[in-house]
Design a protein around this nucleic acid. Structure first.
Lengths: 176, 176
DNA sequence: AGCATAGGCTAACGCCGTTAGCCTCGCAAG
DNA sequence: CTTGCGAGGCTAACGGCGTTAGCCTATGCT
């Protein structure tokens, strides 16, 4: 039974603008390009003004991560309705990550300031792995495989010319 | 057949000291604690003096990463001699990563400046996955699973109270 | 009319990686 | 013995980072 998506931390209209601009910046130029001065510049204001809307940069990033997890969760929950849910979840996971690699990295790489995120959101976004496999251990193992594949692909860790479709297929087979 | 380990980029004696101190610093306090000023302080010198030994911080990090990959490779190659090589490689991989989480993250997370590393070293350190499975696609999938497990564990991404031993066992079973 | 609040601003602080330029020591060659 | 030179330190400084303090102005409510 798929619970409803937890509510995101509410934002004022101006804060929503800022998050949108931040997201565009990260997607365009990577997470390390997200600086308070550059972001402010894209909005036609100065860096200190951003602090009228977010207490610090980490809070802004948390808002970005929430939106990223929420969208990924939506996609994965929808995938459960497809035939062969395990394969569908894997395929959608990869598609989403590769479509927005910089946001994927921001949301999933490095230590997570979990207390900054809407409660339950992280669990909800990973829930489709459990719903597809029906077992918590298989679900975690499958998620680890998917995350490993995606982050290694995004980070360019696989040797050039690797046939990643085949590697994904091999993983899907192992977990079926 | 396991090739010999590629030679690491050679270092002067003083540079070796610096790399050792940098490694201790990263292991003690995490990768973001590695700053040129703090590192120099641990060595009793000033930050600009470090540039007599390394052209920039990335070169120093590359030396750290080389050493990390070399040690991981040694451990994994040794694991091939154990009974049940696939399980042994997974077990040693996890042990090594968890024993030095900050170095593991430094070496494996984020985009890799491959051109700064000793040629062949990265492939050599991952070779045991191929030697254990006998198939390049299974090897990549298994490596992805192992990396995903380890990095999610290190980054504290699994829900509290997860029985990771069981998840590892589930993954090992899937790939056997 | 008066006033609070939202949302801008500049100046500045301490950190970061990095560069320029200087000095001093030890060693090797003439 | 002296001279020169490279190795390996140093200080001062630059531009960029996140962040804070303090100020100003316009909007809209009482």
């Amino acid at each position: 039974m798929s619970r409803e998506r937890p509510a995101l931390t509410p934002l004022t209209p101006r804060a929503t603008d800022i998050v949108s601009a931040a997201r565009a910046l990260v997607e365009d130029e990577g997470r390390e390009a997200l600086t308070m001065r550059v972001l402010a510049g894209r909005l036609g204001i100065r860096a200190p003004s951003l602090y009228k809307h977010f207490p610090d940069k980490a809070a802004l990033e948390a808002a970005l991560i929430e939106r990223s997890l929420a969208e990924l969760g939506e996609v994965l929950h929808a995938a459960l309705a497809e035939p062969e849910p395990v394969a569908a979840v894997l395929r959608r996971y990869r598609e989403s990550a590769v479509a927005s690699p910089n946001m994927y990295r921001l949301a999933t790489a490095g230590p997570l300031a979990r207390e900054r995120l809407a409660p339950g959101l992280e669990d909800w976004s990973g829930e489709p792995f459990f719903l597809a496999t029906g077992d918590p251990y298989r679900a975690q193992a499958l998620w680890s495989f998917a995350h490993g594949m995606v982050i290694l692909e995004i980070d360019g860790r696989f040797p050039g010319g690797s046939d990643l479709d085949r590697t994904w297929a091999e993983g899907a087979r192992a977990f079926s």
